[in-house]
Design a protein around this nucleic acid. Structure first.
Lengths: 205, 205, 205, 205
DNA sequence: CATGAATGAGCCTTCATTCAT
DNA sequence: AATGAATGAAGGCTCATTCAT
């Protein structure tokens, strides 16, 4: 990749990152191109040099978010340890990400109204890919006896876990009494209950 | 209340109900006054006879939703039975409502951008009021030994419970293999794990 | 048609008429919605109450123009007289229209860049319908010996006639020495030469 | 002229030629600087090294077109033969040019909206200069009895001739049954009728 | 000389809001 | 009470133009 192309790629990434922040705060319709641009000290017009239109910009920001998340989950699920340990790590990571980035998952709420058919397919594909890693872990954990979930309820359990976590951005405020680490640990503890861990897995830091 | 006023109140309620449906589907910015009006076979202009502006209409629809929810929770929490039993009932109700109404809770997601300071205060007051009922139940359950939650983590546990449930609208599709009742029961079972119920509370239908 | 609908239809017609004028002057891309609106002492937004978008407005203005033209030609071609006499009348009418309305035919120049496939089909259909009346007259005139055109060159002759006339808007200025009637007569005289009339048909006023 | 200046002049000419093509296709407002640049495998910005702005570029392209046309007509009108023969040649040339270049004359249609006063004056001067050659030929032909036009109607006849020809780009499509030469000959035959040639001048190839 | 990048004005379009009837 | 019609303020997007490198 040429120097030029690299620079451009970096700029695009920068824009996407910024877009994620603003979008998480105001949602798709509530976010204007002006909002995204001024957040980066750019002008509206400049955005169109990098992205065809608002839809594409937002779409790519979603894809980036999903890919990053998948990558994270993947690298962890490849570790050589118990499923239950992996799940703990993944959950911690997910929570930390949500808190630091003020999320961006709500945007994914009603994508049907926003994206094209092709874009939707890709988004759904990635979402499933992300979810699959959770499902695999749950399955593994069921097999080795760490989790107590009926096998035909794996998807439901997984969705409840994700829901409990994704909602955090709605109520968490940094002025709490606990430190971030304590907060994450507490959350992890209760979330893990959903999958029916026997022992107290969170003890192992 | 005069007959006229009654009729008007009924119409207002009708509009609010309709607005809730549309808003749940498209969000605040995605919903136009036209959308709300045509859903009721009215014209845009007519809405302004009943509500000062869009903000007020939406605000009142949120208030109505919250009040209704609080009322529900309240009536249940006044029942003469174990906290754990009450919680089960409340959770079932909440889930059923979400599935049937395709929610309306996402709208509450980022209210800061939409409502005035005064309106926000009222919304937050009601939200807390709603949450308080959950907290009370949790507290009660901790006391009588049904739930296993640290007392200073009640709010966290409650938020995780609400999160797990509110997320349902994002992934539930009616074409599942289970019947609605089965589905609700399964959800309830796993959600209750968060509060650390010892026995299997959901057995008692 | 209800009174309301009538009023609306009249307004639409008014807008289309105005649009034709402005479009003839500045072309499709050179004409803004603002131009069309202000020409009618309206605001931009009001236009969108009557027409979906610019394309539709312009499309309908073209259709209106074509239909009117076809109607004119048709009514004349149904008269009970020689083809040559009909042609004279049609040409006179066409020229008078062009001069008074400062045309609108140039817009039709490159429609491919502007209209949708369906719209184009209709426009071409009407154009052909219009041209067909000329062709019929030419054919008739050839048969009865008034015109001297090879039968397989009818279309070419017709297009040259139309071209000679349509160009008038480019060079005619009202400050000429001749009266309008004289002007029209002169044009008619020379244009008719293209179809090879033997005698001087324009003598019959 | 220095080597550098020569090179630059050649580049300018190249740009103007390309611009003419694109402009002919899409008109002034429909053509973007990007269009002109990419047609030459250049970037937008580079154009501004050679031309002050879009207006100047387009203006010069028009001037070039007009000058070239005038030159053509002039060289022919200086030939030592009958006016009628010259006219035939000029008409053939004009038609051939139109068909090959898909014109560029429509751009001239409404120059008032585009060019500055000074630019307009020059354009009109050149247009008249071009037309004058036609007028001279017509006058000559009238004198020697080849054409049958009233002397005070020369301008009208000339404009009709030009109109009939310029319109060709609107309707000619290359998929006709005739060869290009046949096509040109046919057109010439009918166009010449406008000027009232007695014999069949087109026979002399 | 040329390019990539950025700017800003202007246009199309939407939509909350108003108002005469 | 309700409607049709109109307004005006944004917002998305394009494009002529500029400029540092």
């Amino acid at each position: 990749m040429s120097l030029r192309a690299q620079k451009q790629a970096r700029k695009k990434a920068e824009i996407l990152q910024s877009a994620l922040t603003v979008l998480a705060e105001k949602g798709y319709h509530g976010t204007t191109m002006e909002d995204i641009a001024s957040h980066l000290l750019m002008t509206k017009g400049a955005l169109y040099y990098y992205f065809k239109d608002k839809q594409e910009l937002v779409y790519e920001s979603q894809i980036k978010l999903l890919n990053k998340s998948i990558e994270n989950v993947q690298s962890i699920s490849e570790l050589n340890c118990f499923a239950s340990e992996k799940l703990v790590t993944i959950i911690r990571l997910h929570i930390e990400y949500l808190i630091q980035n003020k999320s961006g998952f709500e945007l994914m709420a009603k994508p049907n109204e926003i994206f094209s058919e092709t874009q939707l397919q890709e988004i759904f594909r990635l979402r499933e890919s992300y979810a699959d890693h959770y499902d695999d872990l749950l399955y593994e954990g069921i097999e080795d006896g760490s989790f107590t979930i009926a096998k035909d309820e794996i998807k439901i359990a997984r969705n409840l876990v994700l829901g409990a976590m994704n909602w955090i951005t709605q109520w968490h405020s940094s002025d709490g009494e606990k430190t971030l680490t304590e907060f994450v640990e507490t959350i992890t503890k209760y979330v893990l209950r959903i999958v029916g861990t026997e022992g107290n897995l969170t003890k192992q830091t």
